[in-house]
C-alpha cells in the first residue's frame, strides 16, 4: 500500500515526528516575507495571485453558497421549532458569518489550493526542478513558497468577503424565497441586528489564519515530496489530513477567543 498505514497510531505519530520540521519550515518562509526578500520576485507574486483568482475563486464561492443554503434551511426549521420563526435571520447571521463560511472556506482552500500547491511543488521536486533553481542561484523557498504566501495574503481577503456575500445571499434565498418562513424585511431586520463590523473582522481573521496555515502546510509537503509520482500523490493526501485538522482546530479556537466570553448578541445573554 502506498500510504503509511502500518499501525493504528501512524497518523498522530507522523504529525509529532514532523511537527518540528514543519514549524522550522514555516519560520523560514515567514522570514523571507518579513525581511522583504520576497519582493525581488513581485512579478511572480502577481502571477500567483492571478492564478489563485482564476482557478480557485469560483469553486470556493460555489461551496460557500451551498453551505449558506444549508444554514438557511436549518435556521428556518430550528427557529420554527423553538417557537420563534421570525428569528431565522438571527440563526443564519450567526451560522453563516461566524462559523460555516470560515469552515467552508477553509475546507475548500485545503482541497483546492492546498493540494494544488503540493501537486505543483511535489512534481517540481521529483523532476529536480527545485534543485535546478538552487543551482541557478535562486532561493527556491523565496521563489516558490514565500511568493505563494504573499499572493494568498493579497487576494484571499477579497475572495473571502465575496464568499461571505455568497453565503448571505444563499441563506436569504433559502429562508425567504424557498421556505417563505419570514418576509424579506423581517429577515433583514434581525439578520443585520445580529452582526456588526467587528464580527466580520473576526470572521476574516479566522479565515486568514486558516489560509496561511493551509498554504504553508501545502508548501511544506510539496517542497519535501520524495519517492517518484507515487510520492507526490501520497504527499498530497497527507497534506489534506493535516490541513483539515488544522482548519477545525483554528475554527474552534477562533470561536472560543472571539465569541466565547462575549456573545455579542444584542438581546438578553
Amino acid at each position: 500500500m502506498a500510504t503509511p498505514s502500518d499501525s493504528w497510531t501512524a497518523v498522530p505519530r507522523d504529525w509529532f515526528a514532523s511537527f518540528g520540521e514543519i514549524v522550522k519550515f514555516l519560520g523560514k518562509v515567514l522570514l523571507q516575507i518579513i525581511d522583504l526578500r520576497v519582493f525581488k520576485y513581485s512579478g511572480e507574486v502577481l502571477r500567483q495571485a492571478g492564478l489563485l483568482i482564476m482557478s480557485s475563486a469560483l469553486v470556493i464561492w460555489v461551496l460557500v453558497f451551498v453551505v449558506g443554503l444549508q444554514c438557511g434551511i436549518e435556521g428556518a426549521y430550528f427557529s420554527r421549532a423553538v417557537g420563534a420563526p421570525a428569528n431565522a435571520g438571527t440563526f443564519s447571521a450567526l451560522c453563516n458569518l461566524r462559523e460555516l463560511v470560515p469552515y467552508a472556506f477553509g475546507w475548500m482552500m485545503a482541497a483546492k489550493i492546498g493540494t494544488g500547491i503540493v501537486a505543483e511543488l511535489g512534481s517540481m521536486r521529483i523532476s529536480d526542478e527545485i534543485d535546478a533553481l538552487e543551482v541557478m542561484g535562486i532561493n527556491s523557498i523565496t521563489f516558490l513558497c514565500a511568493t505563494k504566501l504573499l499572493a494568498s495574503w493579497l487576494t484571499l481577503p477579497f475572495l473571502y468577503i465575496i464568499a461571505i456575500g455568497a453565503g448571505f445571499f444563499a441563506s436569504y434565498l433559502a429562508v425567504v424565497e424557498q421556505i417563505g418562513e419570514v418576509s424579506s424585511g423581517g429577515y433583514f431586520l434581525l439578520f443585520w441586528m445580529f452582526q456588526n463590523p467587528p464580527d466580520m473582522f473576526f470572521s476574516l481573521a479566522k479565515a486568514m489564519v486558516m489560509a496561511t496555515v493551509i498554504v504553508l502546510v501545502g508548501c511544506y509537503y510539496g517542497y519535501n515530496a520524495s519517492g517518484g509520482p507515487v510520492g507526490v500523490g501520497t504527499a498530497t493526501a497527507k497534506s489534506m489530513v493535516l490541513n483539515l485538522v488544522m482548519v477545525h482546530l483554528i475554527g474552534m479556537l477562533g470561536t472560543q477567543v472571539f465569541w466565547g466570553g462575549n456573545a455579542r448578541a444584542p438581546i438578553g445573554g
Binding site: 501512524a10 469552515y103 489530513v241
Partner: peptide
C-alpha cells in the same frame, strides 16, 4: 487512517460551532 483526525475534528466543530454559538443563540 481516519480515527484520529475525525476525533479532533468532531470535538472541535461541535464545541466551537455548535456549542458556543448555540449557547449564544439560546441565551437570547
Amino acid at each position: 487512517l481516519c480515527w484520529f483526525p475525525l476525533l479532533i475534528s468532531t470535538v472541535a466543530v461541535s464545541y466551537g460551532a455548535a456549542g458556543i454559538q448555540a449557547i449564544n443563540f439560546l441565551n437570547i
